[in-house]
Amino acid sequence: MKTGTNRVKRGMAEMQKGGVIMDVVNAEQAKIAEEAGAVAVMALERVPSDIRAAGGVARMADPRIVEEVMGAVTIPVMAKARIGHIVEARVLEAMGVDYIDESEVLTPADEEYHLNKRDYTVPFVCGCRDLGEAARRIGEGASMLRTKGEPGTGNIVEAVRHIRKVNAQVRKVVAMDMDELMTEAKLLGAPYELLMEIKQLGRLPVVNFAAGGVATPADAALMMQLGADGVFVGSGIFKSENPAKFAKAIVEATTHYQDYELIANISKGLGIPMKGMEISSLAPEARMQDRGW
C-alpha cells in the first residue's frame, strides 16, 4: 500500500475535471460553494481582488480559517502557500489540506526557486502562462496545472491568452519531429523527457484548469471551450451581487459549455458581476502572473 504516488496525486485532479473550484474565506462561503456544486474550495484569508486592494505581503491563510473550512464541507479543500515557502506548504500538509496551490496570488517567498513538490504526500497545483512554465512545474512535481490569467481583475483576457498559448504549444510539440524536440526543450526551458511524454500522449500528462479573471458563466464556458479541464473562480463569485446564484450558474455553464441556450437562460437576471479591471491599468509590480520562474 503506497500513499502520495503520482497516480494518486494526479488522479485526485482527474476527479475534479469538468468542475469549478471556488475561492472561499470562511465556512459560510464554503457551504454556499458546496451547495452550488463546486468540486472543491480554496480556503483563503482574502480573495485576490481584496489582496490587491489591501497591498502589503500576502501570506498563507490563518490555519484557523483553513480548519474552519475543512470542518464545514465534505468536498476537497485546497489552500495556497507562497511560492518557495517550504514551511507554509508543510503546515498545510500537516493540517490535512487535500491540495496545495503554490500560488503567485500570494507574495513569493523565494524569487528563484519553487518548491520541490515531489517531496510531499499532498498534491500541488501550480500556475502557468506557457508550456515551458507548465513543464517546469510538472518537473518539480506539480500534479495539476492551472493557467494563471490575471487574478482579481474580473478580466478574462489574460486567462484566454495563457490557455491558448499552452494548448498551441502542446499541439506544436505533438506535431513535431523527434529530431526537433531537444531544441524545442531548450527554447521553452522545459525538461526534454516531459516533452517526449507530451508528444507520446498527445496532451499534457496532468489536468490543466483555467484561472485568473473568470467573472461570468460565459467566461467559464469560454475557458472550457478553449480546452481547459475545469475552472477556478476566485473573486468572481463572492464579489458578485448574488454569490449563491452566480456560483450555481458558473457550475452549470462549465458542465454544459456548448449549450448556448442554457447559458443564456442561466445568465438572465444574475445581478451585477464583480467589477472588472483593464489590464493596462495595472502597474508592472501589480501583475501577479509575472511571479513564478
Binding site: 500500500m1 503506497k2 500513499t3 502520495g4 504516488t5 494518486v8 476537497p76 491540495y99
Partner: peptide, 10 residues
C-alpha cells in the same frame, strides 16, 4: 479512508 494525504494504491 481519510483525506487526500491518506489516498493510496494497493
Amino acid at each position: 479512508f481519510g483525506r487526500q494525504r491518506e489516498s493510496f494504491e494497493a
